[in-house]
């Protein structure tokens, strides 16, 4: 009995220590128009760029919750994200060319403005689709350099989990 009590005590202490550790979930379901917007951005590059999205429907996409080049924010209204500059080492890891990295880092603010604008465009639609999100991106893509767009697209495509 004494042994059982000791084991239970040690066990509960151990469990309480575990629960105090900050949990890290690296994969999460991400729903709503912010998710659709980023999916549309990847799809806008053409079918070859979105293997992880093939056949997926909005609301059933799995995202990394920690990734390079973006900050994902989880508020009460859902998740959203923003692009952030990358270092040379991170750019290499993501497969960005030097000119893509430079353009992307110079235009992250603009990319975030467009991201927000596309979400607002989708909010105005009833049951928006990935394709509509892709078309919305196309409407704004001319406002920033092609290198920044292709760099951001490589970063965004890494968010999806197969």
């Amino acid at each position: 009995m004494k042994k059982f009590m000791t084991t239970a005590l040690v066990g509960s202490l151990f469990l309480s220590m575990i629960s105090l550790q900050p949990a890290r979930a690296f994969v999460g379901f991400w729903t709503g128009n912010p998710a659709l917007t980023i999916a549309g951005f990847v799809v806008a590059a053409g079918p070859a760029a979105h293997g992880a999205l093939k056949g997926k429907k909005p609301g059933a996409m799995t995202f990394l919750s920690a990734a390079i080049g973006v900050i994902i924010m989880d508020g009460e209204a859902g998740q959203t994200m923003k692009f952030v500059p990358v270092s040379a080492a991170q750019a290499q890891e993501l497969g960005l060319t030097r000119s893509e990295m430079t353009a992307y880092n110079d235009e992250t603010e603009e990319l975030n403005q467009i991201y927000e604008a596309v979400i607002a465009d989708l909010d105005a639609l009833e049951n928006p689709t990935i394709e509509q999100a892709a078309r919305a991106w196309d409407n704004y893509a001319g406002s920033i350099s092609e290198e920044a767009v292709s760099g951001a697209r490589k970063i965004a495509s890494k968010l999806f989990v197969e």
């Binding site: 900050p22 979930a25 999460g28 919750s65 920690a66 900050i71 994902i72 924010m73 989880d74 998740q79």
Partner: peptide, 12 residues
């Protein structure tokens, strides 16, 4: 907020 029952490590 949590997404799957566990607190996700969303950025700050």
């Amino acid at each position: 907020a949590s997404t799957d029952g566990e607190p996700a490590q969303w950025d700050d």
